[in-house]
Design a protein around this nucleic acid. Structure first.
Length: 582
RNA sequence: GCGGCUGUAGCUCAGCGGAUAGAGCAUCGGUCUUCGGAACCGAGGGUCGGGGGUUCGAAUCCCUCCAGCCGCACCA
């Protein structure tokens, strides 16, 4: 399995193959009728569409089923039987399973075709604040956004990542003045060791306690907004240092965001006047209490009155609504995004609904451009409240990762790992990333999720490390192979139930990848991979590999190879590495 | 008050309008003198928050109520 060069083979998913045949038969009754094909416990698949079809025809379901089966040409792919009120239970023919598996063996992409209509996707995620620490709240969106970016890229789409960092606003007055007090070198030193919160808190403390500092800060904000050169230079120092720090965190987590993806709020400053102008000329802008607003239909405040999206404040300053509108406009007009995704927490749901709604009204957002707030839920502590430290402060993302690395390393040591120290530490880092990322990805996105470090770093149960271990176990088989071996041309008989079950799992990969992508739910891929790993361990237990002989040994090795590749590819799409040895 | 999200086993979570609601962890009980054992198999544990409705069929769709979290005019 080493050094093999895979080709790209067209593989129609088994599901699609069957669905096509069924749809043809259903069409002869009612054009376009859905066979409602699902995986099943009563066979490999079941089609549930008969009952609805019979209803529509006003006939008895079992009669329709009988007639439909007579017209159904499964072409030797599967056998079918009618069950219960009119279910069609389908069992795949061994020849189909074998040919499908042989195609997967040859295909570098394990049956996942690239998109027939590649387009440009702009994904907005992570978005930390300049001169502010990254904490667990940033973790989930960063991990989910990155997984989606990887999935889209894998499908052949062009991904433009946008890290919409908070780099503008009134706090920058005090931050810059604090920088001036500290000196640039000391500031750089503080920020580069990652003490962003210390810097921010110190600035805040002075601002609250010292009136002259407060005055300086206010003047500084004005200077910043007026484009004062020296102030701008100082501001850039803060931004650059922060971005450098963010990059270090991303590297620690193996997140694909690059400094060039950082396009902060300030980037849109020179577009805000145009935004206002466009809105005004579209007749959408309304002055209310001195602020310039757009009232999109369907939004009300707590008094039941229309709720405005405030584009320009009474003091003529722009709020974040203006920036977000400018960003939508920019992403369609300049970046030519066909799809805009915003991976942002649930609390901002209403804000984005309003922004998107106004963007449609203003015709910045054509109908054919998909624009979606990819909501994710809060990260909670064991007490089901927002995750905080005992002292009530937020938890630094880096210390959390470091802690996960220590736990992983401790486990390796306890298991008697004999790697060289730096090698072991590198492995512990890979495991820790898997632990943290998988925990964030494996539950349905919009649910709140409970943060539990002990559980996520565990090598048992539905965790990242467990999946990595399943993969590593497989790789160890191939290391133990006494001689060169190639999966090319292997026949799959699947005589043992555990082999067949594993094979069925392998054949479902492409469907799941598509499902995860179209629903923007990476957790579906997690559920699949864990299920595959469970099928694997059952197989592993029941079916000796290296000690079996001849064609059977080849077949089992090939199943192992396919499973290892599927686990590795699936994990990689989630942004999780699959080490060869653990 | 209005709106949004959530409510499934002790805990953490899957569940696509379909047949008997499933995993993991924890608990209890087994298996194997491991090829590769951080393994496997089994058991107990459920008014799917409550109540209506739609449907041949509802955890899933609709309505309503309850509980929790979040948002609701110039911070982002």
């Amino acid at each position: 399995m080493t050094g093999r060069r895979w080709e790209t083979v067209e593989v129609t998913s088994t599901y699609e193959l069957l669905r096509g045949r069924l749809a043809d038969a259903f069409d002869t009754f009612v054009p376009g009728a859905d066979p409602v094909l699902r995986t099943s416990d009563h066979g490999d698949y079941q089609a549930n569409g008969i009952m609805a079809l019979a209803k529509q025809l006003g006939r008895a379901p079992r009669d329709v089923a009988t007639e439909l089966v007579a017209r159904l040409d499964l072409g030797g792919l599967a056998t079918v039987e009618i069950a219960g009120p009119g279910f069609l239970n389908l069992t795949l023919e061994p020849t189909l399973l074998s040919s499908q598996l042989r195609a997967l063996v040859r295909d570098a992409r394990l049956g996942v075709a690239t998109s027939a209509s590649p387009h440009t996707v702009v994904i907005d995620y992570s978005a930390p604040n300049v001169a502010k620490e990254m904490h667990v709240g940033h973790l989930r969106g960063t991990v989910i956004g990155d997984a989606l970016a990887r999935l889209y890229r894998f499908m052949g789409h062009t991904v433009i990542a946008r890290n919409h960092v908070g780099d503008w606003g009134t706090p920058f007055g005090m931050l810059i003045e604090h920088l001036v007090d500290l000196g640039e070198d000391a500031t750089a030193a503080t920020l580069s060791i990652g003490d962003l919160d210390g810097f921010y808190r110190a600035a805040r403390a002075k601002f609250d306690a010292d009136d002259t500092f407060k005055d300086r800060s206010r003047r500084r904000v004005v200077a910043l907004q007026a484009g004062d050169e020296e102030t701008g230079r100082l501001w850039r120092v803060l931004v650059e240092q922060s971005v450098r720090y963010f990059s270090a965190v991303y590297e620690k987590l193996d997140i694909t965001l690059a400094p060039s993806d950082v396009v902060g709020e300030s980037y849109y400053n020179n577009m805000l006047e145009d935004v206002v102008r466009d809105l005004a000329s579209a007749g959408l802008l309304v002055e209310s209490d001195g602020a310039r607003c757009v009232f999109a239909p369907g939004f009300t405040n707590r008094e039941g009155e229309p709720l405005p999206l405030i584009v320009q404040k009474r003091d003529e300053g722009f709020g974040y609504a203006a920036t977000d509108l400018a960003a939508v406009r920019d992403r369609v007009q300049q970046l030519h995004g066909d799809e805009l995704l915003y991976v942002v927490g649930a609390p901002q749901a209403q804000h984005f609904e309003m922004v998107f709604s106004v963007a449609r009204l203003a015709r910045w957002l054509p109908e054919q451009v998909r624009c979606e707030h990819v909501i994710f839920g809060n990260v909670l502590g064991a007490d089901r409240k927002m995750f905080k430290t005992r002292s009530g402060t937020t938890v630094k993302l880096v210390s959390l990762i470091d802690e996960a690395v220590e736990r992983a390393d401790a486990t390796l040591v306890a298991r008697g790992n004999d790697m060289a120290l730096d090698e072991r530490r590198a492995l512990a880092t890979q495991i820790a990333r898997a632990a943290v990322k998988y925990a964030d990805l494996s539950t349905e996105r919009q649910r709140d999720s409970v943060f539990d470090l002990d559980r996520m770093v565990s090598f048992e149960g539905d965790t990242g490390p467990y999946l990595q271990y399943a993969h590593a176990r497989l790789r160890s088989i191939f290391r133990r192979l006494p001689s060169a071996w190639d999966s090319e041309g292997v026949e799959f008989v699947l005589a043992h139930e555990a082999e067949r079950s594993l094979a069925m799992g392998l054949l479902g990969f492409s469907d799941v990848v598509h499902g995860a992508l179209t629903t923007l739910q990476p957790h579906r891929l997690c559920v699949y991979l864990f299920d595959l790993a469970q099928r694997l361990t059952s197989f592993y237990e029941a079916c000796p590999v290296l000690t079996s002989q001849g064609a059977l040994r080849d077949e089992r090795l090939a199943l192992c190879e396919l499973t290892a590749r599927t686990l590795a590819l699936g994990l990689s799409l989630l942004g999780i590495e699959a080490p060869d040895q653990m």
